[in-house]
């Protein structure tokens, strides 16, 4: 049977969707998605609820300041998609420390940084930010 117009449209729509999703993933050859899945136990991650405060452009990739805040989180993990290894840091917050922290990180090249928060109810939240660095920090 010849494909109908609707079949063709559906196919091309899914091809576009398929092209869109891995576009970011294709660039990430350092295993960032597996690393995030390990942290979350492959749980669904919702957008929002996490503030990732980082510069959009920074001259020194050797020490990029990153601040994360996630009200109600018990753990926050940072990941990158452009360094040799995807992990950056995992914060575990006790009773005395609100879920907020600042750290300085290395970025070997311009890339995206992800903050994934494990909330007190066991759900996960995510924020990401593209950071352009003029001098890489892992040379």
């Amino acid at each position: 049977m010849a494909p109908t117009r609707r079949d063709v449209l559906l196919l091309s729509a899914s091809a576009v969707a398929a092209a869109l999703v891995p576009a970011g993933a294709a660039q990430a050859s350092n295993g960032v998605w597996q690393a995030i899945d390990e942290f979350t136990g492959s749980a669904l991650r919702l957008e929002g609820g996490v503030l990732l405060d980082a510069p959009e452009i920074f001259d020194n990739g050797g020490a990029v300041p990153i601040r994360v805040v996630a009200e109600g989180a018990r753990r926050i993990a940072l990941f990158n998609d452009g360094n040799p290894n995807p992990g950056v840091a995992v914060f575990n917050f006790g009773r005395l420390v609100p879920p907020e922290a600042t750290i300085r990180i290395r970025l070997a090249q311009s890339q995206t940084v992800y903050a994934v928060a494990e909330m007190a109810d066991g759900t996960y939240r995510e924020a990401s930010q593209k950071i352009a660095v003029t001098v890489g920090g892992c040379g």
Binding site: G62, N80, N83, V88, L96, P98, A101, T102, I105, G137
Partner: peptide, 23 residues
């Protein structure tokens, strides 16, 4: 009482700097 723990990877800058709030 443990207030905060941080697991660090090589992507953390030399002379690791960590800042947080506490009460």
């Amino acid at each position: 009482e443990v207030a905060i723990t941080v697991d660090l990877e090589p992507a953390v800058s030399a002379d690791p700097y960590v800042q947080f709030e506490m009460a």
